[in-house]
């Protein structure tokens, strides 16, 4: 299989532009099972935020309930974190971002948290285009309750106990595209290079970025017959394209033949590079995105890459036309109307 990323010629320095080390982006020790895909995702989140030189104090981490939802405690300990209730993290994140739209929001969810109990909130978050990076660490099972099928489990996939899933899986990427999400990607915990580029691009995105990561559960869904284990995923990963990411403060220094790479400029001025592996895949075409996802499912492929990307869509906070200063920090001189205003209202009611 081809490499999933476009190699950048720029070297990664030992310190980022804030003078911080990767270690400064770390968190508490993971309590997940050794080899859990989620820990691999955590590592790439640390790397992406470090390499993007994001000020961790300006980040807010959110999660629901489940194994995946524990992970915000394992990265960015300098950021406020909120481990909320099962499936309803999108609403908490929405409220927090409305209170302070300067926060960089990152939400970590799982397939149980998003595709079952939280499906409604997930869909409405996407529909509103809440500015947040929303990662689904998707392993097809409920890990914390010891291995029941989730709604993303593939048809025919087997539990350790031999029980076969006979319901069709939900494709959260197709759903996000359908709902008008401006950034839809699928990654694989076993492909960190692709993952980190997707993450960096998501940091540069100004609306909801949905990242569905196939993140194997080594304890309950990594056996023969599982379709979300490491071996199966590696064998079935299908690259949509190679991804490169060039931040706004760097020059594009990648050599490529004209016509082979699509450049997409993000809101913050950075550039996402997508090198064609397939003929004419257009990541701004909703219909093509959905049909390609369906084709992959039918062919038993695990399609990864930046499936859909339209960075220009207005985010919810932009739509609400709020003042530039975060709402929470407004003081009474702005938020308490005048005595005359109350008099006028009272006059009207007399």
């Amino acid at each position: 299989m081809a490499d999933s990323t476009i190699k950048s010629t720029t070297e990664v320095p030992k310190e980022n532009r804030l003078g911080l080390k990767a270690l400064d982006y770390g968190g508490g020790k993971s309590t997940l099972c050794a080899g859990c895909g989620h820990d691999a995702v955590t590592n790439q989140i640390i790397r992406a935020f470090y390499e993007m030189s994001v000020k961790a104090e300006n980040v807010a981490k959110f999660s629901g309930i489940g194994c995946s939802s524990k992970t915000p405690a394992y990265f960015l300990s300098r950021s406020h974190g909120f481990n909320s209730v099962h499936g309803r993290m999108p609403s908490v994140a929405t409220g927090a971002i409305l209170a302070n739209h300067k926060l960089i929001g990152i939400g970590i969810s799982g397939d149980g948290d998003t595709a079952s109990i939280g499906l409604g909130q997930f869909m409405h978050m996407v529909r509103r285009n809440i500015p947040i990076i929303y990662i689904i660490e998707n392993n097809g099972v409920y890990g914390l309750t010891k291995g029941q099928f989730s709604a993303t489990a593939d048809e025919g996939s087997k539990l350790k106990s031999g029980v076969v899933n006979d319901l069709p899986p939900m494709d959260l990427c197709a759903l996000a595209v359908e709902l008008g999400c401006g950034f839809v990607a699928r990654g694989f915990a076993g492909d960190p290079k692709q993952m980190v580029n997707i993450l960096k691009a998501s940091i540069a995105h100004s609306g909801t970025a949905v990242i569905d990561v196939i993140s194997p559960c080594v304890t309950f869904n990594n056996h023969e017959g599982s379709t979300k284990g490491y071996t199966y995923s590696k064998e079935h990963q299908e690259l949509l394209h190679q991804i490169g990411f060039v931040p706004s403060y760097e020059q594009i220094e990648v050599d490529y033949e004209p016509g082979t790479v699509r450049e997409v400029t993000m809101h913050d001025g950075s550039t996402v590079l997508l090198r064609k592996l397939e003929e004419d895949y257009d990541p701004t075409n909703t219909i093509q995105a959905i049909s390609r996802l369906h084709e992959a499912t039918q062919a038993g492929q695990m399609l990864t890459g930046l499936i859909f990307l339209t960075p220009e869509k207005k985010s919810f906070t932009e739509l609400l036309n709020v003042v530039d200063q975060p709402l929470y920090s407004l003081t009474a001189d702005v938020t308490k109307p005048s005595r005359e205003a109350l008099d006028a209202i009272m006059q009207e009611l007399m």
Partner: peptide, 13 residues
């Protein structure tokens, strides 16, 4: 949920 998210982030919600 939004009220609590906003309250957590310091807003009067």
């Amino acid at each position: 949920g939004m009220v609590l998210g906003a309250g957590w982030a310091g807003a009067r919600s």
